[in-house]
Design a binder for these strands. Structure first.
Length: 496
RNA sequence: GGUCCCAUCGUCUAGCGGUCAGGACGCUGGCCUCUCACGCCGGAAGCUCGGGUUCGAUUCCCGAUGGGAUCACCA
């Protein structure tokens, strides 16, 4: 078998959206699994709608997802000479012809066809006229004539597809479609085929909205006597109302999911499961995906995008990562809500950033431990950042009803004892085990159950009644901060 | 409308003639527990309909219905 070469050819008329990302992912996974090549090509022949911003946004989203390419990016607008050569060949070999019918004339043909109950299409007026393209051509490129393919009139064109099977399209449905505009620029179907041929693309995985123009492309392949690639048409991703996914279904662009705190790996995992399966397995690492992906197990029916499931999967991926892997993402989400803890790198000005290392704002805050305490209770990185706020507050604000309920005079004694014993722990021995011992002692002396003292402690430490476990928080906060916060709560009770 | 694709719990799906139709999300009962989560155990919930083929159809064929895609000098 030859080297597998796949491609992803977005048109830069907007951001990379969910459906496009999935198509890119399938092509990328397949190439990676087969040790093949993945080519990126920008289809910008619609110069009116293509923008540089879109190109950049697409690159950025692919990069975020970790989808890298081996060749390209190619830009179709830089390949017009190549298309022109092929178009000329097609005309010379009699597979295509010049046509000077005006858009109005063509529209009239369509009207006529509609009136007689037939399919509206070009009637082939110039098909056998052998027109030459010289009228009004100043630059030798624009001709005032379009070039049309000489499509077969009889029989049918068959598309063999790995996921859809074999489908026959009646040639009577296909008219002599334009392959070159009157300004000399190529039309989509032509450019795609020429690119795929010249880039040696042998495996085409794309949305099944392309299935219906595959016969048109096959006609061009045949006219050029080129061998056909393997086609795999993947069903569409629909919105929650079963309509094609669009803006009104909420977030469409990949970058929005980044902003919402989703992990790239979770995104990949979710996207790949939308239309592909591997038995009952739901959770996949990037590496597993590359190993297990297969064209054979792509489903044939369209699927709906489900935010809840993505979120659940994201939670699982957050749990499965190490704190150090999460640290840079966590920090950038913290930054977005206005919290920028000092790090090793900006404490020592000329050291390289070491975001994966433990961080310390000078008071014993331990970044990786903070993350660890939040991992099992964060569905997104945005949630994690939000939930971590209390760690970074110099003076924590007590939630009013929480303080009223738990910071009461009868807690002063147990809290003071706690402070005393925590203080007695040597800095090097500040561990979960020793903290447990401390509170065992406090509980014995005060004859209280831990449940009785836990909530007051929680309010003292965080200001709220909902938080990670007491001991793990203390470790993340560090000994000094822990003591300070409990002392402050005691002071608060005594003043009230 | 023509052409084409598709059809298992609400959703994503496993299933490739004989299964108590399996898993996941969501929903829900419980357990665990220092709160909230996590985790664990359990529950409700599905083969669109009608014809065939077959000893036997969720599975194969045909039709209906429903949903989707596409019919440009857009990609």
């Amino acid at each position: 078998m030859d080297t597998i070469i796949t491609r992803f050819p977005p048109s830069p008329t907007g951001y990379l959206h969910i459906g496009g990302a999935r198509t890119a992912l399938f092509n990328w996974l397949y190439a990676r699994q087969k040790g093949g090549k993945f080519v990126l090509r920008i289809e910008d022949t619609d110069e009116a709608r293509s923008t540089k911003e879109s190109v950049d946004a697409i690159f950025e989203s692919l990069e975020w997802l970790g989808i890298d390419w081996d060749e390209g990016p190619y830009f179709q607008t830089q390949r017009y000479d190549i298309y022109r050569d092929y178009i000329n060949k097609l005309v010379e070999s009699g597979h295509a012809y010049y046509c000077d019918c005006t858009p109005e004339e063509v529209e009239a043909m369509r009207e006529e066809a509609r009136a007689t109950g037939k399919k509206p299409m070009y009637n082939g007026k110039c098909r056998e006229l052998n027109k030459k393209p010289n009228s009004g051509s100043k630059d030798g490129k624009s001709t005032n004539m379009v070039v049309r393919i000489k499509a077969p009139k009889m029989g049918s064109t068959v598309v063999d597809d790995v996921v859809k099977g074999s489908t026959a399209f009646p040639n009577s449905e296909i008219d002599d479609f334009i392959i070159q505009r009157s300004d000399g620029s190529p039309m989509y179907n032509l450019a795609v085929v020429i690119d795929d041929i010249t880039m040696n693309i042998n495996t085409i995985i794309r949305g099944d909205d392309h299935l219906v123009n595959t016969p048109k492309q096959i006609i061009i392949y045949n006219a050029l006597e080129a061998s056909l690639p393997l086609f795999a048409h993947v069903p569409m991703v629909l919105g929650s109302d079963k309509a094609r996914l669009s803006k009104r279904h909420g977030a469409m662009s990949v970058s929005e999911y980044k902003d919402m705190g989703f992990l790239p790996d979770a995104m990949l995992n979710y996207l790949v499961r939308l239309g592909w399966s591997h038995g009952d397995q739901e959770f996949f690492t990037r590496q597993e995906l590359i190993e297990k992906f297969s064209l054979e197990h792509i489903g044939r029916s369209p699927s709906m995008f489900d935010m809840d499931k993505l979120t659940a999967l994201n939670a699982k991926h957050i749990q499965s990562k190490s704190p150090s892997e999460l640290a840079p993402i966590f920090l950038s989400n913290l930054h977005k809500i206005g919290i920028t803890p000092q790090t090793e790198s900006n404490l020592e000005t000329n050291s390289e950033p070491k975001l994966n290392k433990n961080l310390d704002n000078g008071l014993g805050l331990n970044l990786e431990k903070i993350i660890e305490t939040l991992q099992p209770r964060s569905k997104t990185m945005v949630e994690m950042a939000e939930a971590s706020k209390f760690y970074f507050q110099e003076t924590i604000e007590f939630d009013e009803s929480a303080a009223k309920k738990f910071l009461k005079p009868d807690m002063v004694d147990p809290l003071k004892r706690s402070i005393e014993y925590i203080k007695a722990i040597a800095l090097a021995d500040f561990s979960e085990k020793n903290l447990e011992d401390v509170f065992k002692k406090v509980m014995e002396e005060t004859n209280l159950k831990f449940g009785k003292i836990a909530q007051p402690l929680r309010v003292a430490l965080t200001g709220s009644t909902v938080s990670p476990g007491i001991f793990e928080m203390m470790l993340a906060l560090g000994k000094d901060r822990t003591v300070q916060r409990i002392e402050r709560a005691v002071g608060y009770i005594e003043i009230e």
